[in-house]
Amino acid sequence: MTALTSDKVRKKYKNSNGVYWPYMVPGLIAFTLIVIVSFVWNIYLSFTKWNGLGAPKWIGFDNYAKLMVDETFWQSFLHSVVFIFAMAIVPTALGLIIASALFDYVSPRFGNATSAASRAGFFLPQIIPIPIAGLLWTWMLSSQTGIVNKVLTDWGHPEWAQNWLGDAKWAMFSVTIVLIWIQVGYTIVIFMSGLARADQSVHEAAAIDGATWFQRFRIITLNQLAPEIAVVLLTTTVAALKVFAPVYVMTQGGPGTATTVPAYYSYFNFIQTSKVGYGAAISTVLAILLIVMSLVIFRYQNKQGENR
């Protein structure tokens, strides 16, 4: 092709560019209104003192200064760290073990149906809306009528029965267990699909050479699943930082502030106590943290894309 024609093509292409702009106008306007305006507005509110009535009063960085010394705020992030453990670390570890056991141990010996059925069982909590999962577990963990205490009592250990969600000593632990229950199915499904992608001949060769299942898991499986592990850890960590509904439904952040997380603390200030500026400051901190994390994910995924 001569320079002239390729120039022509490029020019034509450039012209056609303008033709396509109108298609994204509705999307961009809506996005600007709903996301950008709201987010900027929220940041503005975080610099004000306001109870939702009258005009917001500009107070500069006062809310943020207050956050720095607010024990509940720091405590709420500490709870987020526990939830990262419950939603990211534990499900990733359990998911790896269960997925590879189902995929290359159970499946070849007992058939795909067995492993698919087990996978479906673990996955079931994932399809339940979180408020309903919360309702279900509130019922099971109820101190008076709950199943958990009933079972413990029937087994001859009435002293083990607790007020699982109402006792500050146990509330975090109980919510953690529920989150693990919800989250494991997600990691299993992703890791099993990753294993299906991976090259099985390495496994077979290693097995013929006498490697045990655990050796193969440690050396081959973990390496093959490295990209999935990274994506799962990052996305579930983001999800853990966003936790709101489970806490709202099961404990309302309590008892006291025993299970308060940043999202709930922000909601609490916004709605329950009408400290709009303070709630906005908490949510802005959380949003910035999450945006930084999503940029890390974005970069990582682009790198993965280039490497492939």
Binding site: I34, F39, Y267, A280
Partner: peptide
Amino acid sequence: TIPGEALMYPL
């Protein structure tokens, strides 16, 4: 990835 709490009040 912006949490709903950071958009909720303006919305």
